[in-house]
Simulated assay, not measured.
Amino acid sequence: MSSGSPTALKRWIAFELRAMREEAGRSRPQAAERLGRAVTQIGHLETGRNLPSLPDVEVLLAWYGRPERVEVFRDLIRRARKGRDWWIGFTDAMPEWFGLYLGLEASAVEAASYDAVHVPGLLQTAPYAEAIIRAGERALSEAEIARRTELRMARHALYERQQDPLRVWAVLDEAALRRQVGGPAVLRDQLHLLAELANRPNIDLQLLPASSGAHAGVEGTFTLLTFPPELEGDHGVAYVETRVRGIYYEDPAEILLYRQALTRLQVQALDPEESRDAINRIAQEMT
């Protein structure tokens, strides 16, 4: 697995416990009675608030007719308890709700996105990130801006790591690449970084030209996270971020809608090689 993020593991364990209970035709009250627990405790297990004990997992999986999965659950529960999310030292530099996304991103094998307004945070330079953060929340102190920028830069390690680097596939709207965030010089350096990143085997960047007209991304930016096969039954997540919170779409039918939209955008966009050339041309225009 790409990462032993406790946040991601807790989410998957909760997701699977609920799915297996429903497939077995059992209710939460029945599961609570089986374990001798309160119904609210079963709810906490199925929402990821709490991790189940190993004995409780053995009882539930046998009762759900899936005893063969006990060993997998034992391993993941142990890892969730012993693991440490890489971003724990940055809790002062982000809203509380963003922690779940960072945990999921760290455990994903691929992050695919359409970016309508600006370069995605995962691929930003420090000056570009600072300009975005500064413009977004004017009440932040200089120290807070610096910490948030540092957090954003730390995310680069996901696609730079030697073992199982994150695969990134981003469709970037031309308007996002021409918006002079931080001024021409900052944007030029940001575009140079994108051109360099496009040479990495695990990163594909596509530019969606303004001449494309109306397209499947008119509703705005979104990200699709895909998880490793180890997390059996996990269809991934479609993520949309607002000023107030992150929104996670986990229903397979909803995820499919976002995947279909992204596929259409990838078809409309320039191919990766053409996109790299276009990014370099835009950079040359910045004076």
Rank of each mutant, 00 (worst) to 15 (best):
E96W: 12
E96L: 14
E96R: 14
W97V: 11
W97C: 12
F98Y: 15
G99R: 15
G99I: 09
G103Y: 06
L104N: 06
L104E: 11
E105N: 10
E105M: 10
S107Y: 03
A108M: 09
V109E: 15
E110H: 07
A111F: 00
S113E: 14
Y114M: 08
D115Y: 00
D115G: 06
A116G: 06
V117K: 11
V119E: 01
G121W: 02
P127K: 01
Y128A: 01
A129I: 00
E130R: 10
E130T: 08
E130W: 02
I132D: 01
I132S: 01
G136Y: 08
R138A: 13
L140Q: 04
S141A: 00
R147L: 10
T149H: 05
E150N: 01
H156Y: 05
H156M: 01
L158F: 08
E160A: 13
Q163T: 14
D164C: 05
P165R: 08
R167N: 14
V168M: 07
A170L: 07
V171K: 09
V171L: 13
L172M: 09
D173A: 14
E174I: 10
A176H: 12
R179Y: 08
G183E: 04
P184C: 12
L187T: 06
D189M: 08
L191Q: 09
L193Q: 12
L193Y: 05
L194E: 06
L194D: 04
L197Q: 02
A198E: 06
N199S: 13
